[in-house]
Design a protein around this nucleic acid. Sequence first.
DNA 1: CCTACCGATCGGTAGG
DNA 2: CCTACCGATCGGTAGG
Lengths: 199, 199
Amino acid sequence: MKNTKQKILNVSLDLFSIYGFEATSMSKIANTIGIRKASLYSHFESKQAILNEIIDEILEYYDKKSNFVNTDWNTVDVPENVDEIVKKIQEQIQFILHDPYISKARKMLVIEQFNNPILSKLQTKQNYIDVLNYFTEFIQLLIQKDILIEEDATIMASQFCLPITVWINLCDREPERENEVMEQICKHIEQFFKVYKKG
Amino acid sequence: MKNTKQKILNVSLDLFSIYGFEATSMSKIANTIGIRKASLYSHFESKQAILNEIIDEILEYYDKKSNFVNTDWNTVDVPENVDEIVKKIQEQIQFILHDPYISKARKMLVIEQFNNPILSKLQTKQNYIDVLNYFTEFIQLLIQKDILIEEDATIMASQFCLPITVWINLCDREPERENEVMEQICKHIEQFFKVYKKG
DNA sequence: CCTACCGATCGGTAGG
DNA sequence: CCTACCGATCGGTAGG
């Protein structure tokens, strides 16, 4: 029962993240699971209700798993060493890139961003504002610690994290480019610290 | 006749760029123009044929209008003054952002990038590779002219143009943010030149 | 450009 | 969870 309900949610997100909500039919969802379309309505009262519950799941998962909203920079001990910082950030990128739930949610938000106002706002929050705020605080801390030079922290954060969001989107679209992209990311981070490092 | 055919192409791109190809129906296209669905088939043999012709138009328009593939850097006189460079780039961004054809094409490619292999490749080419190559050559030239310091030109170009592509996407999604975004872009470009300027 | 129609599929319901 | 069904709409065709 609960198993089937979860299967419906998972399969629906799979399909929504590739084809979009409208272009995914209830039959397609049902067939993918191996049940009849009518049976979906034992678990959800409508197609919209499936999407609503997926959105709830995304919000919940995000609040639980995302560093971007959960980090208390006062308690985090930031490594002083640039190599260590690069390593930490690479790990974060690998997680965001491959966590099956996060990556599918991200793709769905990209697809639905122009026709669903709720998902549009969510896309801006999760994949722009929260990320930018996180890295702005991170860079402010590095400036305070005299690791980076004192410039506009928001602009520095933009230059740091926005190229990475483009590369993540590129990997979502063409996963075969991942190695090439990770190399670019690595070079980019090193270059960033080289140019903004104090002294 | 030809007028109606062009109307069909325009209206279809309008709708495809918001809802996507699959989720846009032939009736919706016809009703938006004010004709009957069956009449569409006097101009196009199928819904797919409309998309194919739109893709051809995008390719043609892009080849004709895009700086990113048409610039011969040997003949372009790059302004030495950073303020002049900032101004030129802002003009380019304004054009890309508001040209009705380019902006709709860009939105459609974003929406269709995960389920249509042709549009997926086109998205990577037009909105990543060509842009990055263009700015890599631009920065190489500025390095040659002793305006910028000598670092990896591709990485510098990434740091320069990829944040801007994110901001353009943000404006596509939330046009009311345009002023705020243009301010960020301006600060970003100035910061970039401040940090990479020679001497 | 239209009316009238096709079979297939859409989201959803009844009833078991 | 199923079969059987609903009206509406899908992409597309015939014929004028």
